[in-house]
Amino acid sequence: MNAKEFLMRGINLERRVETIKEQIEHYKALVNDCSVTYSDSPKSTASNYKLEECTQKIMDLQEELCSAMADLVDVTCEIGKAIQKLDNYDYQDLLVNRYVLGKTWEKIAEDMNYGIRNVHRLHGEALREIKIFS
């Protein structure tokens, strides 16, 4: 694993966490859209089964979300420790902003008061300096 792959693990896990959250919200909306109608006709167990099935999917996704978030915290801490070992504070700021906080290149350039090309140059230098232990 190279330095960039090591650092990208956090961004990839964060994207996974957001996808799971969206899935949970989607299923919750479907469950909430179910309405109860009362009539004299016999109950349908099929609709209850579907509701239970959907609720179980939500619970399964919530477990998956907790696991993904725990992984994200672990990976982000590991990435942060590797970044802190750099002697150059500009490299540290750039890598934390990009790989821990998930900022765009444009926002990083603005925050650091650099041009975008300079940020990309610094990024390449920082990647060559960072030491990873895989």
Rank of each mutant, 00 (worst) to 15 (best):
Met1Leu: 04
Ala3Glu: 14
Ala3Phe: 05
Lys4Leu: 12
Phe6Gln: 06
Leu7Trp: 02
Met8Pro: 00
Arg9Ile: 02
Glu14Thr: 02
Arg16Ser: 03
Val17Gly: 05
Val17Ile: 05
Val17Ser: 01
Val17Arg: 05
Thr19Pro: 00
Ile20Tyr: 08
Ile20Leu: 05
Lys21Pro: 06
Lys21Arg: 12
Glu22Arg: 10
Glu22Met: 08
Glu22Tyr: 07
Glu22Asp: 04
Gln23Phe: 11
Ile24Trp: 02
Glu25Ala: 11
His26Arg: 12
His26Asp: 14
His26Gln: 12
Tyr27Asp: 10
Val31Cys: 02
Asn32Ile: 02
Asn32Ser: 11
Asn32Tyr: 09
Cys34Glu: 15
Ser35Glu: 14
Val36Trp: 13
Thr37Asn: 11
Tyr38Pro: 00
Pro42Ile: 00
Pro42Ser: 00
Lys43Val: 10
Lys43Asp: 07
Thr45Gly: 10
Ser47Thr: 15
Ser47Gln: 12
Tyr49Leu: 13
Tyr49Thr: 13
Leu51His: 08
Glu52Arg: 03
Glu52Val: 01
Glu53His: 14
Cys54His: 03
Cys54Ala: 08
Thr55Ser: 11
Gln56Asp: 14
Gln56Gly: 04
Lys57Ala: 05
Ile58Lys: 07
Ile58Leu: 13
Met59Asn: 13
Asp60Asn: 08
Glu63Asp: 06
Glu63Phe: 07
Glu64Cys: 10
Glu64Val: 07
Glu64Ala: 08
Leu65Thr: 01
Ser67Gly: 03
Ser67Arg: 11
Ser67Cys: 05
Ser67Met: 08
Met69Asp: 11
Met69Trp: 04
Ala70Trp: 05
Ala70Met: 09
Asp71Cys: 08
Leu72Thr: 02
Val73Cys: 10
Val73His: 12
Asp74Ala: 13
Asp74Cys: 12
Thr76Trp: 02
Thr76Arg: 09
Cys77Asp: 15
Ile79Lys: 06
Ile79Pro: 00
Ile79Arg: 06
Gly80Lys: 14
Gly80Thr: 09
Gly80Tyr: 01
Gly80Leu: 09
Ala82Phe: 10
Ile83Phe: 05
Ile83Thr: 03
Ile83Glu: 03
Leu86His: 03
Asp87Ile: 03
Tyr89Thr: 12
Tyr89Phe: 07
Asp90Arg: 15
Tyr91Gly: 01
Gln92Asn: 04
Gln92Tyr: 01
Asp93Tyr: 12
Val96Gly: 04
Asn97Ile: 00
Asn97Tyr: 05
Asn97Ser: 05
Arg98Gly: 01
Arg98Leu: 04
Arg98Met: 07
Leu101Ser: 11
Lys103Val: 00
Lys103Met: 11
Thr104Met: 04
Thr104Val: 02
Trp105Pro: 02
Glu106Val: 10
Glu106Trp: 06
Glu106Phe: 10
Glu110Thr: 11
Asp111Pro: 04
Asn113Asp: 09
Tyr114Arg: 10
Tyr114Ser: 08
Ile116Glu: 06
Asn118Cys: 09
Val119Gln: 00
Val119Glu: 03
Val119Trp: 03
His120Gly: 11
His120Thr: 15
His120Gln: 15
His120Leu: 15
Arg121Glu: 15
Leu122Glu: 00
Leu122His: 03
Leu122Ser: 02
His123Glu: 02
Gly124Gln: 06
Glu125His: 06
Glu125Asn: 08
Ala126Phe: 04
Ala126Thr: 06
Leu127Tyr: 10
Arg128Asp: 06
Arg128Trp: 01
Glu129Ser: 06
Ile130Thr: 06
Lys131Cys: 12
Ile132His: 00
Ile132Gly: 00
